[in-house]
C-alpha cells in the first residue's frame, strides 16, 4: 500500500488497478510488494461484491493477458505475463471468502503482535478426538455416520465463515481494538483444522 492515489506512468490518470491504465491502455510497471486489493482496484476491506470482483477480473484479463501481446516488444510481453500471473493469484485469493479473510488479516495485522496459533478453549483436544473417531469410521466404512460427521463439520465451518464479515466490520469501526483481529485469527485457525478433517472424508456420489 505504497500510494493512496496511484497514477498512470504515461498519461498520469488516476489508476483503478495498479496493473493497467484504462484511459491510455498502457501496461503499468508495478512494485513486487503490491497488494491484491490494489491489483484489482478495490478498497482494502472484507466487503467485496462477488459480481463486481468478477467483472473487474474479466475486464483486466482482457487487457493484460499475454495472448494480446504476441507481437509486442519482449519487455511488454514479459510484463503482461507477470501482471496476468499476479492478477490470477489476486483474484483467486479475494474471490474465496476464507482466503480473503486470511489475506486481509495478514495485511491488517502487519504491525500488531497477534498470537498466530490461538484456538478456542479445548478446541485442539476436540480435534484430536474427532480425528481418532474419523479413523474408526473410515475403518468400519460407516457411511451413515461418516456423512453425519461431514455435515456437522461443514455446518461448523459455515458458522465460522459467517462471522468474518461482521468481525471485519467491527474492526473497521474500532481499528484500535486488536482483540477483534485476534478473534479473527482464532476463527481462521479453527477453520483450517475443520477443513483438514473434511478433506479426509471421501465425498459420496
Amino acid at each position: 500500500m505504497a500510494f493512496d492515489e496511484p497514477a498512470c506512468h504515461t498519461c498520469e490518470t488516476t489508476l483503478v488497478s495498479r496493473l493497467f491504465c484504462f484511459s491510455c491502455n498502457a501496461l503499468q510497471p508495478f512494485p513486487r510488494e503490491i497488494d491484491f486489493f490494489e491489483v484489482l482496484g478495490f478498497p482494502v476491506s472484507f466487503e467485496l461484491k462477488s459480481a463486481e470482483l468478477e467483472e473487474r477480473y474479466q475486464q483486466l484479463s482482457l487487457e493484460l493477458h499475454p495472448d494480446f501481446y504476441g507481437s509486442a516488444p519482449e519487455a511488454e510481453q514479459l510484463l503482461s505475463e507477470t501482471a496476468s500471473a499476479i492478477l490470477n493469484t489476486a483474484y483467486k485469493t479475494l474471490h474465496e471468502p476464507t482466503l480473503r479473510a486470511g489475506y486481509l488479516l495478514h495485511l491488517l495485522a502487519e504491525k500488531q503482535q497477534l498470537d498466530e496459533r490461538s484456538l478456542p478453549e479445548g478446541f485442539l483436544a476436540e480435534m484430536f478426538f474427532l480425528q481418532e473417531e474419523l479413523d474408526e469410521l473410515l475403518d468400519s466404512v460407516n457411511s451413515v455416520e461418516l456423512s453425519a460427521m461431514h455435515d456437522d463439520l461443514q455446518n461448523r465451518k459455515k458458522d465460522i465463515e459467517a462471522d468474518y464479515a461482521p468481525l471485519f466490520k467491527k474492526h473497521e469501526e474500532h481499528p484500535e481494538d486488536s482483540g477483534i483481529l485476534q478473534q479473527l485469527q482464532t476463527h481462521l485457525n479453527a477453520e483450517r483444522y475443520l477443513r483438514r478433517l473434511l478433506e479426509r472424508i471421501p465425498v459420496a456420489d
Binding site: E116, F128, Q131, L188, R192, Y193
Partner: peptide, 13 residues
Amino acid sequence: GLVGAPECGDVMK
C-alpha cells in the same frame, strides 16, 4: 502434550 499447527491443521499428541 497436545499441539497443533494452524498452518495446515495437523494435530500431534
